[in-house]
Computed example of a mutant assay.
Amino acid sequence: MEVGAIHFEVKGRARDLEKRLHERFRSQRKKGEWFEGVTNEDVLTAVGGRAATAKDY
Rank of each mutant, 00 (worst) to 15 (best):
A14R: 12
G12N: 13
A46L: 03
L44Q: 06
L44R: 13
G49R: 11
G12D: 14
R50D: 14
R24V: 05
K11S: 14
V43R: 07
W34N: 11
R29I: 03
G32L: 09
E33F: 11
R15Q: 15
R13K: 15
E33H: 14
G37I: 03
G49V: 03
V43N: 05
E36G: 08
N40A: 12
D16S: 15
R15Y: 06
V43M: 06
H22D: 11
A46S: 04
L21I: 09
G37V: 03
A46C: 01
A14K: 12
V38P: 09
A14W: 06
Q28R: 10
E36F: 08
F35D: 00
G37K: 02
G37R: 08
R24K: 14
Q28M: 03
A52P: 00
F25H: 03
T45F: 09
R29H: 06
R26Y: 05
G37A: 06
G12C: 14
S27L: 07
L44P: 02
A52L: 10
D42V: 06
F25Y: 05
K30L: 15
K30T: 14
E23V: 07
D42Q: 04
R26E: 12
A46R: 01
K31H: 14
R29S: 04
E18H: 08
E18L: 15
D16G: 09
V38I: 12
E18I: 13
T45G: 03
E18P: 00
K11P: 00
E41D: 14
L44A: 03
T53K: 12
W34D: 14
L44K: 12
D42Y: 05
R20M: 12
N40R: 13
K19L: 13
F35K: 01
K11E: 11
R13Q: 15
S27P: 00
G49H: 06
V47S: 02
A51E: 06
T53Y: 00
G32F: 15
V38W: 04
K31E: 14
G48V: 07
E36C: 12
N40W: 02
E23S: 06
F35W: 08
G37F: 02
T39D: 10
E18D: 02
A14T: 13
N40H: 10
G12R: 12
K11D: 12
V47I: 06
R24G: 04
F25W: 03
L44I: 07
N40Y: 02
E33Y: 09
A14S: 15
A51V: 05
R20V: 10
L21E: 04
L17P: 00
E41W: 05
K11A: 14
V38D: 10
R50Y: 00
W34S: 08
T45A: 12
A51D: 07
A51G: 10
K11T: 11
W34M: 15
R26N: 07
K31Q: 15
K11G: 10
R29K: 12
T45L: 11
K19T: 14
V38L: 05
E33Q: 11
D42H: 09
F25V: 01
K19P: 01
T45R: 13
